[in-house]
């Protein structure tokens, strides 16, 4: 499903002519099968977020390839990448990243609007999913009227609404207390089982990482499969 080959990337800092290159991703090889939950664990600054950004198409890597179901996405132009994301990916963010002036219902509806789906169909889908994710009683609540856990549920529902084959989660429980964290993790697991969605979860929390079928660790830009104590 996801295949990454020889991926390397470096950030350039400093003024022009006197730039320094700081490598953040070093020769990464990575594979994810359909329906898996894969977690990438690493300390802050290890390069795991950059890796997610490359996977999601937010940035173009300097070296290497990213293939999604055989399609090379790492060479996409901005508009192509956006269109691909809309159809194939869902995103769960640490800060939920909900639209503050849209209510829960409208936030979940947004990707369907972007897809140009009919209002009636949209509403049907959103209502059904809100029920499934336990949000049906907060449909007209705005993000600032929701608890952290509820906001993240809305975030998850928004990621899920287009039935994407892959969902990327960047520290999905980073802003939640431990009780809510468990709720969210259970929801992710259940969605993975019922919808067969592939999850790639970035986290610094080993407990979160343990819900995954496979775990990778990122350390200084290098990715290795399995638990690496240096990385946690």
């Amino acid at each position: 499903m996801i295949q990454v080959m020889n991926l390397s990337h470096a950030f350039k800092i400093g003024k022009r002519g006197n730039e320094k290159s700081i490598p953040v991703l070093k020769d990464i090889d990575f594979r994810v099968k359909q329906g898996e939950i894969v977690s990438i664990v690493g300390k802050s600054g290890s390069g795991k977020s950059t890796f997610l950004h490359v996977l999601a198409g937010f940035m173009v890597p300097q070296k290497g390839k990213v293939l999604i179901n055989g399609t090379e996405t790492s060479t996409f132009k901005e508009a192509e990448s956006a269109a691909f994301r809309l159809e194939n990916y869902g995103f769960i963010f640490q800060n939920f990243q909900l639209m503050p002036r849209l209510n829960a219902f409208e936030n979940i509806e947004l990707p369907l609007k972007l897809q140009g789906i009919d209002r009636v169909k949209r509403h049907e889908k959103v209502k059904a999913l809100m029920k499934e994710t336990g949000l049906d009683n907060v449909a007209d609540h705005y993000p600032n009227e929701l608890s952290g856990g509820q906001q993240q549920r809305v975030g998850i529902a928004r990621a899920l609404i287009t039935n994407p084959p892959i969902i990327f989660a960047d520290e999905p429980t980073g802003s939640l207390d431990s009780e809510t964290e468990q709720d969210v993790l259970l929801l992710i697991q259940s969605l993975n089982q019922t919808h067969g969605i592939t999850f790639v979860i970035i986290t610094h929390d080993e407990e979160v990482a343990h819900i995954a079928n496979r775990m990778y660790t990122m350390h200084d830009g290098q990715l290795t499969e399995g638990s690496d104590q240096r990385a946690i």
Partner: peptide
């Protein structure tokens, strides 16, 4: 956020 979830820059 809109761009991240797939809004076309032209849109």
């Amino acid at each position: 956020v809109m761009k991240a979830i797939g809004a076309n820059p032209k849109l």
